[in-house]
Simulated scan of single mutants.
Amino acid sequence: MTDEEVVMNLIVPAGTAKSAAIESIAAARKHDFERAEQLLAKADAAIVDAHEHQSESIRAVLNGEEDSGVSLIMVHGQDHLMNAITTIDLARQIVGLLHELSE
């Protein structure tokens, strides 16, 4: 996988997911829980996309189709992916708490 493909396949969807998760908290703070859930769904879809590309890359290395050398951009991509997953998990909890408090 080229560095450009790493950026497009990992970092961009992870960034989209993280942004949507943060936006979901903002929507929940305004008591727009429907929008918050839509944004969390958007975040989940972006993470699935990034994770599928990550799995493809791992399979290619295991099958000997790609070099297993670790590049700085790959590490950066993995970092973005893991941070986005954590942000989504926390956003889901915060949105849930805000929803409970609003009732």
Rank of each mutant, 00 (worst) to 15 (best):
I47A: 11
K30V: 14
R92P: 05
T16D: 03
D44I: 12
V6A: 03
V61C: 08
L81E: 07
H99Y: 13
R29V: 08
M8Q: 08
Q78H: 14
E100I: 14
S71N: 03
H51D: 13
D89C: 01
I88M: 11
I25W: 08
A43M: 05
D3Q: 05
V61Y: 08
I22L: 15
Q78D: 13
E52K: 11
K42L: 11
L81D: 07
E103V: 07
H99R: 14
T2M: 07
A20V: 12
D89Q: 04
M8A: 07
H99A: 10
E56D: 11
A84M: 08
E4Y: 04
G15L: 01
A91P: 01
A41L: 09
V70I: 15
A41K: 03
V95S: 04
R35P: 11
K42A: 09
D32M: 11
L90E: 03
S57D: 11
L101K: 10
E100A: 09
Q54G: 10
E52Y: 13
V95K: 05
D49P: 08
T2A: 06
A26W: 12
T2C: 05
L39M: 05
H53W: 13
I11T: 07
V12M: 07
R92N: 00
E100L: 13
D49E: 15
S57E: 10
S57A: 12
N83S: 15
D3G: 09
R35F: 02
D3Y: 02
M8Y: 08
I22E: 14
N9I: 02
L97Q: 04
A21G: 07
V61P: 07
L40F: 03
H31Q: 13
I73Y: 06
A84L: 07
N63C: 09
I22S: 09
L10Y: 08
T2D: 12
E65F: 02
E34Q: 09
L101G: 11
G15Y: 02
I58S: 04
V61S: 01
E37Q: 09
P13R: 03
E37S: 04
Q38D: 09
S55Y: 13
T16P: 00
Q78R: 13
A46Q: 08
E56H: 13
E56W: 09
E5S: 10
F33K: 04
M8H: 09
I88S: 10
G77M: 10
R29C: 10
T86P: 08
D79I: 08
S24L: 04
D3A: 05
D49R: 12
E23W: 12
A43L: 08
H51M: 06
I47P: 14
L72I: 15
I11E: 01
R35N: 12
H51C: 07
R29Q: 15
D32Q: 14
I47K: 13
T16M: 01
G69I: 13
L72F: 15
N9C: 00
A14Y: 05
A28D: 07
V75C: 12
E34P: 02
L40W: 02
S19E: 05
A50T: 15
Q78E: 14
